[in-house]
Amino acid sequence: MEYVLTANALCKQYKHFKALNNFSMHVPKGAVYGFVGRNGAGKTTLIRLVCGLQYATSGDYTLYGVNSAQKEITASRRRMGAIVESPSIYLDMTAEENLRAQYRVLGLPSRDGISELLELVGLENTGRKKAKDFSLGMRQRLGIAIALAGDPDFLLLDEPINGLDPQGIIEIRELILKLNRERQITVLISSHILDELSRLATHYGFIDNGRMVKEISAQELEAACRKCVHLEVSDSRILARVLDELRMEYTVLSDTQADVFAKINITELTLALAKQNCSVLSIQEKDESLESYYINLVGAN
């Protein structure tokens, strides 16, 4: 698999606090990578490091195959656009003026593309209105337009839907999906709004206390979160035999545990097992969401 961004044993320490601790991650090309973690887990710190705003205490990362220790890392950042925490826009300028300012920073000679970008993010009718008078959602969209000004292949969005109203959330979601599907832009999106992430992400990375706890694709997560009945029995080999006879899909987890992916008649199953001297110790219905998966992964505390 081709990766846009990989991090290897990355550490960032602020005085006595380790924001990132031996952190590793792999962002596949073309993915919408949901970067999940509670407040202070280290999400923004990682994005700051990748953007070059801060330096790692130890470890390194690779952006488009260029290691962070190499001088060429600044050139590889030109393929990237980012919004870190809040959108970086001149508040006393209009949307168009902000884009023109970013075009100058990028050294783009013409203004071609500015109106298309404004249209893409839905700000084409803002006219002379200054960014300081924009709503939070409009500022976020302008921030995304500025991040897109250099025609990047990789977009880093730090909490882009924080504080937005439902309409704003939908607009940003639609925009991110459009960028990913129509322009093949890889997106890393950090958030703790799990429900929203689950509508977007093709891959997930779960961070806690500065460490990557788990990286998983959306397909794998779906399989892990599939509705099932968790059974604990005295002998899972007998259970497997009975489930085969009943033509039910299952996964044996241990000598005594298995997950059954079907609606089961408990009386029928219990009687069938009892005939073969296998007793049922516990039955639990599992219906995991991204939220419960995350809680199980990092702990409720």
Binding site: G52, L53, T74, A82, V84, E85, S88, V105, L106, I146
Partner: peptide, 10 residues
């Protein structure tokens, strides 16, 4: 925050 735009684009 616009200084971040300059650093982030290389």
């Amino acid at each position: 925050g616009t200084i971040r735009n300059k650093i982030a684009v290389g």
